[in-house]
């Protein structure tokens, strides 16, 4: 039987991986996947906490909302990636640096 600690460990690693991905991947889609990882870490946390609090409905609900919103965000983000590709001819985020300083 998995303990709460082990869930938390997994999510912490997932969260860290997510942060690692968003800060290192140069491909915009890859970066967005990192964001998904972070959100998933949160999502799993919610479910785990809800489970260990006697299947509290609120926690489960939150994780569902996270999934929904992640999808919405991804939709917008991908649209913007496409737009970026049209402008810059690449989806490498390192290229999009005209705004700085």
């Amino acid at each position: 039987m998995a303990t709460l600690q082990s869930y938390l460990m997994v999510t912490a690693i997932l969260f860290g991986l997510g942060l690692f991905v968003v800060t290192t991947r140069r491909n915009a889609v890859g970066v967005l996947m990192g964001v998904e990882l972070i959100l998933n870490a949160a999502s799993i946390n919610f479910v785990a906490f809800a489970h260990f609090r006697g299947n509290d409905v609120a926690g489960n609900m939150f994780s569902i909302f996270i999934i929904v919103l992640a999808a919405a965000e991804a939709a917008v983000a991908l649209a913007l990636v496409i737009s970026l590709f049209r402008q810059f001819g690449t989806i490498d985020v390192e290229e999009a640096t005209t705004l700085k300083g």
Partner: peptide, 11 residues
């Protein structure tokens, strides 16, 4: 520091 690179911001 404001390099314009989004990943630097995240760093």
């Amino acid at each position: 520091a404001q390099t314009g690179r989004i990943q630097d911001y995240l760093y």
